[in-house]
Design a protein around this nucleic acid. Sequence first.
DNA 1: TTTTAACCTGACCAAACGGTCAAGATAAAT
DNA 2: ATTTATCTTGACCGTTTGGTCAGGTTAAAA
Lengths: 225, 225
Amino acid sequence: MTSFKSVSKQDSQFGAKPAANGAHKAAIRQENEEQILAAAERVFADFGFKGATTARIAETANVPKANVHYYFSTKEALYRRIMEDVCDHWLEAAMTFDNSADPAVILRGYIEAKMDLSRARPYGSRLWAHEIIRGAKFSSGYISTTVKDWLDSRVVVIKGWIAEGKMDDIEPYSLMYMIFATTQHYADFGRQIEIFNGDRPLSEEQFAEAKENVVRIILKGVGLS
Amino acid sequence: MTSFKSVSKQDSQFGAKPAANGAHKAAIRQENEEQILAAAERVFADFGFKGATTARIAETANVPKANVHYYFSTKEALYRRIMEDVCDHWLEAAMTFDNSADPAVILRGYIEAKMDLSRARPYGSRLWAHEIIRGAKFSSGYISTTVKDWLDSRVVVIKGWIAEGKMDDIEPYSLMYMIFATTQHYADFGRQIEIFNGDRPLSEEQFAEAKENVVRIILKGVGLS
DNA sequence: TTTTAACCTGACCAAACGGTCAAGATAAAT
DNA sequence: ATTTATCTTGACCGTTTGGTCAGGTTAAAA
């Protein structure tokens, strides 16, 4: 699905899948994997691939370092696995941008979904940012296929809207990049926004207001309101 | 000026400043420092603080590793020095956002200056992104003083425009974050844009078109056109 | 010409790193 | 009850890292 080649979702030390055990053992495995994945997402987001250490991931997950390597053979396998999860979430938000309704409704829905994703999973967004800044070494294949295909199809949709006179004649890629940039900024540069906000994270009210402002500016900016 | 505490611009191994020599020696020093700084900016931008190695910086700068430490005592001192330079350039662009003319003219000028900065110095922008994602450990002081003061003063200006009915009633911080995000996106996520563009960097024409689109959407989006 | 101050660098080091392993603990299967 | 498969972990290993240093070269000053 996400096509991050050369790694299976079941990356245990023993190749196949020892998961079909009794219930207790399976539960232990699942809980430990989840704990390690959650910790790794944080640590990778905070320090990047090279900056993140397996020792710190282990410490954050509250397991011995050797146990991390029991569940995930290498640091790279763990990283790829998390990138898959991040991409799955991104794809979920992407699905809100369909072709069924009013342009303003669709665009509003997509922007709101992306903003909510930045709020709910900031670490995933920051991890993605790290990956791209570093040159997208692990994910360029995914971007040039899955993501690009999706983006190009949305560009066609937008060009259709323009041709029908429903919105201004804006270069669709510029618009999409603006949406990517602005929505993800609230996760990637969250620390900066926090400092500007008097060293306190945005409250729910502040974030809701920001979301509404982003939607308003972009919709009006392209002639959809 | 930029107030990155605890490090002087003249960070040689010998505390004081051995720069006032004969012309040749001074030239050697200047050229080597510049070469190392340029290399370090690239390497830090590509790999982050921890991911960048002094060996790689030395290799990129075409000097032996020990020579890097001759001119810059530690990796952190080198990093701080580059952050200073990045901030100086940011401040320069910030100065275009004055209070003298028509809102549309000012905003257009500032957006274009930021876009041009992303184009001319992508490594600096990406280095800044790394720094913020990592939690702004070196620069939170600078952000909470110099940058915040500047931002707050611009917010006052924008609120003035709104009060005078010159533009829509938009929360100024949301607008400024959108400008930060969108303009810097062309540097920070340049690799992603490159992939979307068929694995080729944006041409001058494409970039100029993107710049104009960003200006148009934002100006119209806040009621300034 | 001699002396001095700055520049240069191969070789080295302690610390931190990703990853391994043997030996023990626990729970499921027989 | 015994065997088997999985889970757990402290100790360990080879490599990479930031940083040091002694001994050299070069150029400016005396």
